[in-house]
Each structure stands twice: as C-alpha cells, then as structure tokens.
Amino acid sequence: MSEMKKIKNLKEFSTSADRFEGANLLCPGCAHSIIVREVLNATNDDMVLSASTGCLEVCTAVYPYTSWDASWIHIGFENGSTAVAGAESMYKALKNKGRLKQPERNPKFVSFAGDGASYDIGFQWISGCMERGHNIMHVVLDNEVYANTGGQRSSSTPIGSSATTSPAGRVSYGEKKNKKDMVAIMAAHGIPYSAQVAPNKWKDMVKKIQHGFSVDGPVFINAVSPCTTEWKFDPKDTMHLTDLSTDTLVFPLYEIIDGHELNITYRPKNVIPVEEYLAAQGRFKHLFKDEYKYLIKEWQERVDANWAYLQRREEARV
C-alpha cells in the first residue's frame, strides 16, 4: 500500500474515490476544496489530517456533520501543525516498539491551514515542526486574507489590496506591506521539500504532493486559493483567476529541495501583464484610479524582479 499511486493523466486520476465530501459549507466556487481534493486524491494511503481554524475548518466540521472520511482533528488557530506532528511522533514510537496492529500501513500526516494560521498565528508552531524534522506535510491554502472573520489583512496580503483593516479610500491605497515570502522562510529551515502550487496545474501539484509524501522529513506546500468573497470576483471565475495568477507570475510555481536547490516547474508560454490579474479582482479596483495608477507599474516591476530572482537562483543552484 505504501507504493506511490500512479497518476498518468486526468482520466486515470478521476478513478480516485474522494475522501472529502460535498455539502460542506464553503462558498460556491471556493478553491479550498479543490486543493484539498487534489492533495487527498494524490495518495491511496491512510491519512491523518488536521485543519487550523479558518474557512476550511469551520465549513467542513459544522456539528453534527463532518466532511472528512479520514482521521481529522481541529484544536486551535495556531496548532494544527503540532497536532499532526504529535500524532506522527506517537505513530513512530508505537512502530518502534512493535505495538502497531497493522504496521504495513503507511499513513500520511497532513495539516491544512489558511494563510492567517500559517503566516501569522501559527508561524512559531510550524517553524518548530520544520525544525524538529517531523515526517509531516503542511499545506497552506493561501487566499491572502483572513476570509473567515470578514477579510482582515494578514501578512500574506499583497500591496494595494483593500482589506477591512487596511481599507482603500481617499487617504490610503489599502495594504502597504508586501507579502511575506513564506516558501523561502520555510526552505531556510533546511527542510527536504518546500514548494508553491496552484490547483489549476493539477499535474504539477499532484507531482509535488507525491514527492512530498515520498521524502523523509517535513514538507511545506503553499497553494494559491482564490477567494470569491474577499478577492471579489464571480464564483464561476475561480479557475480563470488561478490561471491568471500563475500566468502573470504573481504566483510562480517552483520547488526548493533540501533548502537550496530551486527548480521552476512551470514557465507560462505567454506571460500575461499583471494588470489583467489586478483588473479581474474587486479588491484591486481602486488601483485603476488615476492617482493610484503608479502602483500597477510597481506591481509589474516587483513581479518581474521576483521572476528574475527565481530564475537566477535556479541557474546558480544555491
């Protein structure tokens, strides 16, 4: 059972039996469940899951219902990763003592968290898990805002975005601080694998998840998750927004192996100007006023600089 599930194409992938159920209370068109499904379907092994407080947690575990067909735990905002790390430590200890009833089963330990629970509140806990070297995977559903509580800014919110605690108006263009580079921070722990993924590139994503399951040690995955409510776009455009985010290189897809070896895994054939990505979302609407137009230029420069940085790091292999 511990051998890797073979997924050659989407038809083969579609024979997977889902372990995440519908009738959860996520918004129509929410990308969270697309990411969760792609992660869970990437393996046939048993799973031990957790979710930190956030949209995913409150919407999939509304008493008396649960949407998970696997062992799943929720404790607090910050400690989803440590809960799974604890389960993993117990599993290792019991295995070493020979007290497991079915030692041939090889469960996978995954914790899901939003960007608030990873970039801000759970940061210390995740850092601890990565440093202690637990054999877990931490998946961030990065929607760049505290969507569950009404759209407050998090340290993942990008410049110019209008959030309820950094609103755009007469005196401000919204969020003024740039997004934290979480993948690089986690890679700096020297963990075996950290990667940025997007649900629209499902093959790239499944490949990365499976690689993450196969390595021994902590794995960090940052997944872009467009939020129809807080990014303010039509629910049917979720995949269009994800396409835009990867093809404008706002969310470049890459992986970092052993903390230093960076590989870019997706190079768009036609790079789209960032302006299109910004124009598709209501949270950047004010940037198209005359007084804030200079920010769009700055956005493009920032994205270009980041892409150049990634390419140079890939070349230099450091």
């Binding site: 159920e21 519908g22 996520l26 697309i34 792609e38 629209n200 499902w202």
Partner: peptide, 14 residues
Amino acid sequence: IDCQFCWIYCPDVS
C-alpha cells in the same frame, strides 16, 4: 469527451 476537467475542478465533489 470525458476530459474530466469538471471532475478535478469541482469544489463540491458533485
């Protein structure tokens, strides 16, 4: 044509 794009991108397992 059974491309399964709708299956993979359906958020509600529907």
